[in-house]
């Protein structure tokens, strides 16, 4: 087995891991009870899956084609930067539009804080 086959095998394994992680996060999306828990599955596992696939593609271009792809590099950077922000914004919008937490939830500190905040603004 020469060096090139080894590199290709490694890249294939990275992309396979990315696919499996993406698949598992899709299962989590179906199994978890409410929008907040589903955001966990999407914000982390899906990000890792997409990152693995992109890194694998980047390595294919670098080693097999011998070409440093700036676009893929930018793609990795932006996926990494935007996925936590989007999950935060989705959760916040859901809470603001009164989507209730799942039945099994045990604690909600934010509810009291929002009630107090509303009182203060009414007083002023």
């Amino acid at each position: 087995m020469n060096a090139m086959t080894m590199i290709e095998l490694g890249i294939a394994i990275i992309i396979l891991i990315g696919t499996i992680v993406g698949f598992l996060s899709a299962i989590g999306f179906l199994r978890l009870p409410d929008v907040y828990n589903r955001a966990h599955a999407l914000s982390k596992s899906a990000t890792l899956g997409v990152l693995c696939v992109l890194v694998g593609t980047f390595l294919v271009f670098l080693f097999v084609e011998g070409y440093f792809s700036i676009k893929l590099f930018l793609g990795i950077f932006f996926v990494f930067l935007t996925s936590p922000v989007s999950s935060h914004v989705i959760c916040r919008a859901a809470y603001r539009s009164h989507v209730s937490l799942a039945e099994i939830s045990v604690r909600d500190d934010l509810k009291e804080a929002i009630i107090e905040n509303n009182k203060e603004t009414e007083d002023m």
Partner: peptide, 20 residues
């Protein structure tokens, strides 16, 4: 990611979600 995947593939999902 691996912690979340570990929770997802647990056959009986006994989680206690909440906001702190």
């Amino acid at each position: 990611s691996f912690v979340v995947i570990g929770i997802i593939i647990r056959p009986k999902m006994n989680i206690k979600p909440g906001i702190f």
